[in-house]
Design a protein around this nucleic acid. Structure first.
Lengths: 230, 230
DNA sequence: CGGTTCATTGATCGTGGTCAACTCGAGTGG
DNA sequence: CCACTCGAGTTGACCACGATCAATGAACCG
């Protein structure tokens, strides 16, 4: 947890808040970023595009997410960022970030935690893409988004959440085509596992959903907003 | 670059060096690690296994790699580590790591760089798994391993490298079956792009290889051992 | 040598891709 | 209030990439 002292320092160093409407580019792949972003409100996603136009969604961003950093020595981000809903961003220059890290070790530690967590999320997605069938992958993704959006785990039977997603975005995340995502969602609904209509997810059979998605307790903890106490 | 001062501090704090023969478990998925590992010599890989036994290789480790850390708040690693060749490991307790970070800001910065770089490598693999065909994915993987192993980019025509891999490992990385990996390698050889026999990779057509793999200059820089000067 | 691991090849199958048409709901404007 | 548009979702017919099953071959090693 951050100290008030630390929060004050952050408040002094941050740049003005930025508003971005739904469905806009926050930054392009290849941009040279001078700011680190902190998502205050709304949803966004990171994606990567191949020269021929194929696009992959890399990570969904929810309030609290920090993004837009690149490792030293690279010149240009390997990914772009896009808003899903209307979005409120807090910006921090890289030099301000460095100063905060120097002055406040707990800030630095928290930042390290977030980067490590991002890596774990990425490894989870690698596993899903490499190993899972379309049913499993979609179950996996929707469970992840459910838990990250609500902070609840496991889901109570029949619970509903609004997830501002299109089937096309599910396709770009799972590496499937929109058509096949549609058919797979249909099958999941017929089997009574989940229903997803008008961007609302209804969990019909939580146990089956967890089983299909193949996620561990450990992983699910990473989806909750804060690190659990040690 | 590390100062000699810093290297001295690291030398005092590290635990004894550990030798692991080829093809052994370094740690299991789910282990609670008390050490961070630094790979001094040899090759290894990180993998994740699903409850039903399906296995995904997450990252290949080469000398210089740091691994075995987990984000605070988790209890048990989400992945396992396995040696490929005979391997020499340098160990550091987590408390020693924290002390080094506190005392030597440049050490801390370097560690952040490595974690961010690991994330970028993971994002690259997500793109490959989600978007690329079997030919592209295998071209991608072998180019990555070539560049990381030799530090050379782009490869000179006809250059050969020993990569201690089996086709089964390529399969576990790309999400394909060993049989299909074999057929795809055959096609790549017929097309004169690359040949891979007896764990030796020969680059026949570097330009085509780079094009097929779809990697950017930026990404390739991440495969080189050190961050380029800013 | 005999055994083991890895690579290779063939035949067949199935998941998911492709192409194309149509539906539905939410705006928007006449 | 209805006609039009537009984006998202839905459905069908067909196709192909990669999976599966099974057998053989080649290198390595005791």
């Amino acid at each position: 947890m951050r100290s008030t002292d630390e929060l004050g320092a952050l408040e002094r160093l941050r740049s003005p808040t930025l508003f971005v409407p739904a469905d806009r580019t926050i930054y392009h792949q290849g941009d040279r970023p001078s700011r680190i972003y902190n998502l205050v409100r709304g949803w966004a996603y990171l994606h990567r595009t191949l020269p021929d136009g194929r696009r992959q969604i890399l990570r969904f961003l929810m309030p609290g997410a920090v993004f837009g950093a690149e490792p030293d020595g690279t010149s240009g981000l390997s990914h772009g960022a896009q808003s899903i809903s209307d979005v409120l961003l807090c910006q921090l220059t890289t030099s301000a970030l460095e100063e905060l890290s120097r002055r406040h070790p707990s800030f630095q530690a928290r930042r390290m935690w977030m980067v490590q967590r991002d890596t774990e999320l990425a490894l989870e997605q690698i596993t899903s893409l490499g190993l899972q069938s379309s049913i499993e992958a979609i179950a996996h993704l929707l469970l992840e988004l459910y838990v990250r959006a609500t902070g609840r785990y496991p889901p109570p039977t029949g619970d509903a959440v609004y997830l501002p997603l299109t089937q096309a975005m599910i396709a770009e995340t799972t590496g499937l085509t929109p058509v096949h995502v549609n058919r797979t969602l249909k099958r999941l609904e017929q089997d009574g596992v989940i229903a997803f209509h008008r961007r609302t997810l209804i969990v019909g059979d939580p146990a089956r959903l967890v089983q299909l998605s193949g996620v561990s307790e450990e992983t699910m903890r990473l989806w909750l907003p804060e690190p659990a106490a040690p």
